[in-house]
Design a protein around this nucleic acid. Structure first.
Lengths: 156, 156
DNA sequence: ATGAAAGCTCAAGTCAGGTTTAGATCAAGC
DNA sequence: GCTTGATCTAAACCTGACTTGAGCTTTCAT
């Protein structure tokens, strides 16, 4: 069986469902590494499919690329994450999800009290004042609006 | 009682805990409106404190500024949201939060199955596939990883 | 040997939700 | 009247996670 050990960026992209540009981006960020052909094209190891998979899954769990990079960097010498690594990391992720769910549930409870109250007063509103915001992930910067709540003075 | 009807941007900022720059930003986005002094400085109605409060709370519930703007625009002639509006909107928000919690709970269940599995195979991984992130490039409905998944999952 | 497809680099653009900066002007207390 | 602090505008900058474009080069099947 002839199947080469090295795959092109296009193949890596196709097999992971990630755009070619994203793979270059990950490489630039140091999340993955590539060998080069004489002509300068990238060649990846098959194991990198797994590595990219790891990135995607971890990302879905809410880790930033930076955090993912930190996890990957912790592995010995460019090793691809294996089962043991995944267990360690996914266990940590579970805690994270638990916290997110708890925060949302708390918010929902407050919202229930708010429905029909209509106070819309920052001073009184327990919903607003609840410290835990729903930790939703998405595109763009999330500016944590932090501890300014103390400054909020009397509202109309 | 002398208390002016109109407040400066600084006072609005202080009373809502929002930065002055953010208030100008909201105005630019059409979320709030300001009168002007002869000299060109903004003057807000006291009711705008409530309006900004609405923005903050809705934001906390996960609405984007665009969505918030749409809600505000729906109110008659620059009116500030009142109790009835809030009830309507917060009821909708509750559904949204319910959905978020449901999604997270589902993910957590999958993660539990994943912990210790360590497959990291995009083809098999129900966690990843749950998110339904299909690869839309090129020909073929390759569900990522394609035919060589066995090879890839072999690390386990 | 050739022509299309895929790849390369580097710079810049995108979106959200703002903040920062610069230089000028306004409002108000003494 | 003067000074000080608040405000003004416009534009640039920020993070994160990428994408897009321009202009060339490499690879591969025929």
């Amino acid at each position: 069986m002839h199947r080469t050990d090295l795959i092109s960026i296009g193949e890596l992209a196709a097999r992971t469902g990630v755009a070619v540009s994203a793979i270059r981006f990950y490489e630039a960020k140091g999340l993955i590494e590539a060998l080069r052909t004489r002509g300068g094209q990238r060649r990846f190891l098959r194991a990198d499919i797994r590595r990219v998979s790891f990135i995607l899954i971890a990302q879905q769990m809410g880790l930033s690329l930076e955090e993912i990079g930190a996890e990957l960097a912790r592995l010995p010498a460019g090793r691809t994450p294996n089962a043991a690594d995944w267990t360690r990391i996914s266990t940590a992720l579970r805690a994270r999800i638990d916290a997110q769910i708890a925060a949302l549930t708390r918010t929902r409870g407050l919202l229930d009290q708010c429905i029909g109250c209509g106070c819309l007063s920052l001073k009184k509103c327990r919903l607003y004042n609840a410290q835990d915001k729903a930790a939703q992930r998405g595109a763009g910067p999330r500016y944590v609006l932090g501890d300014r709540a103390g400054e909020i003075a009397e509202v109309v």
